[in-house]
Design a protein around this nucleic acid. Structure first.
Lengths: 357, 357
DNA sequence: GTGAAAGCGCTAACAT
DNA sequence: ATGTTAGCGCTTTCAC
């Protein structure tokens, strides 16, 4: 162990190549090398080529801290997950990060990630990263109807974009998904299948997207002249466990619903489990649908009817928008509303042949 | 839009408070303020308290770039996901990040994240972050038997820890999970249930953990004097889709296996789906088990028998180990082997009484 | 077309 | 106990 620690002693670590080293080797000034590498055209093209080649050979890479200090820009964007703890598992997560990651590396930005539950720790985290100039901007997720992050960053005049709207500042740059019309489509599909008692398992309406989807549910029923029944609406917590518990209660009701909409796929998957434990055949005895279009729903049994939103693509767009904002490029639109797509699968189709016992 | 851009103009942004500002206000030197904030005891305690209070009032936060440039330390650790693209969805991911995130913020470190598929882009990413002194160390995941990252970082004398071993440097600091004994336990359980034809759906054996688990499978059979049958071993790709395809083929075989082990939960979940589509009752007609202990498996129908590894905790430990290494603290052990825990659920339990032995 | 010099904000060695 | 000074590596005036 001592051995490993000794080996890792900083003193024995190769020092990174600096501009100065390249300059010395070519007998040029630091200034010229810097400008050559930056591609300025007030340096002789022969010199420029030579510098670039030599720097490359020597493995020169600019020191991030120095450049950042000088330019007062970090080329880094921040993402703070509004959650924490051990059983945090969101399929949305990995795909979203992949989208952001691909876009940021394309534009030579880095991504700084942290986790902090909404509240004081979250506030401290945003404070720290803004005031220490740790990042050039933020991507917000799970926006809330009344969102402290949005008022804070707006007040501080600090760039951000969000996945989802907020009442706090309706015009703030964001990518939204039209959850209302998505769920409306879903309700229409269920009505077409003959359902009249359709339940909805939601989550805290603090979250903008939850309210949107609930609204779609209400409007969808209204348009079909079906009275809104509060007994059919439950509040879950976006997890499988939450969907499971809520569905268990709903199933016991009489008359029980013939269809259940989960505010997200995980909720719906929990509901499927509850139904199956209760001896119901999902798709035949009870229709269940979700929202998200995760892989998990696709491979559920039965496969889950859902409203698909392109999370990877949203991650890409929301970071592209942020970088444009940071660089004051008026490239992309400052808000866009993505219309999600209904995917009908077996969990809401009653023609499904059931394996005989 | 013009409005928003104008508002975001940097010039109108409040300048962050610098040490100099605090010093000026108190009519002290920059040095004294710096030392007071650092808690040195060569500054009068009255002064120190005053400085700390004033700095706090003024909202002073050290500028990260300046401190970093001076100290030649970033207090940041890097994590590069060896993958990319749109349908990347790994339940392991979010929990692991949560573990790392909680530990790093506890120690005032930040986490820089990127995604790059194994190969050239990955090499460039590591090069960049080491040479630009962007991070103080790396956490590696999905270690490979022959792992370029490990030889590179070792050669560069750059701190890293990994989740999983590698043949490249067996003694490198890491947290391992004893996949071999985990699967051995699982095989034993299946044998106890009376199974003799047990299949294994793996993945690329380049990945260390795949080889480990396969070895457990082989040893488990060997100990029961059951001949290893290569026809029962398939290579999947760690996804549900891969498990589904492999299981579909296995089920068609005659004689078909009576039990299938998936190298991870996703593979097993795919296999469950294939079995159910084929009209089999999982748990009764065919036993299926996985490895990971993800929430998805817990809520599958039937619930998935699996070998549980504490991903959140591993994330915490692997980052604690890395930070200790960076700070040359010999605090934690430099490697540890976690023994995963078999969790038996319905997917491998039939109603028949288990023969006592 | 190239170089000298200043300075980003911070820390630390060296005064006093 | 406090201040002066130098310098981390880079970019960018400003001279020549």
């Amino acid at each position: 162990m001592g051995g490993i620690l000794r080996i890792l002693n900083k003193d024995t670590r190769a020092l990174p190549v600096r501009i100065r080293d390249v300059a010395k080797k070519l007998d040029l000034s630091v200034t010229t090398v810097s400008r050559a590498l930056a591609g300025y055209d007030d340096v002789a093209s022969a010199t420029r080529d030579l510098v670039i080649e030599t720097a490359d050979e020597m493995g020169y890479v600019p020191q991030h801290a120095a450049r950042q200090l000088r330019r007062q820009r970090t080329e880094t964007i921040g993402l703070i997950f509004p959650t924490t703890g051990s059983r945090f598992s969101d399929p949305f997560f990995s795909e979203f990060i992949a989208g952001i990651g691909d876009e940021t590396s394309r534009r030579s930005y880095d991504l700084l990630v942290s986790v902090a539950p909404p509240g004081e720790a979250e506030e401290r985290a945003y404070h720290l990263w803004t005031n220490s100039r740790r990042v050039d901007g933020f991507i917000l997720i799970r926006t809330r109807v009344d969102d402290w992050r949005i008022s804070y960053l707006t007040k501080e005049n600090f760039p951000f974009t969000s996945f989802g709207r907020s009442k706090t500042l309706e015009t703030s740059p964001h990518i939204g998904v039209d959850g209302c019309s998505g769920v409306k489509d879903l309700v229409k599909h269920l009505l077409d299948q003959g359902h009249r008692r359709i339940a909805f398992i939601g989550a805290s309406e603090e979250l903008t997207f939850v309210g949107d989807r609930l609204e779609g549910y209400q409007i969808g029923l209204e348009e079909a002249h079906i009275a809104y029944d509060p007994d059919l609406v439950f509040e879950g917590d976006l997890t499988r466990a939450g969907g499971y518990e809520a569905a268990k209660i709903l199933i016991e009701r009489s008359p029980s619903p013939t269809a259940i909409i989960g505010v997200n796929d995980l909720t719906a998957l929990g509901a499927i489990r509850a139904a199956q434990e209760g001896g119901l055949i999902v798709g035949k005895d009870l229709a269940i649908a979700g929202f998200d279009g995760t892989v998990a729903g696709e491979h559920a049994h039965p496969a889950l009817t859902t409203v698909y939103q392109p999370v990877y693509e949203i991650g890409r767009q929301v970071s592209a928008m942020l970088i444009d904002l940071i660089e004051n490029q008026a490239g992309s639109e400052l808000d866009s509303l993505i219309r999600p797509r209904l995917i009908v699968r077996d969990s809401t189709l009653n023609s499904k042949p059931v394996p005989a016992d």
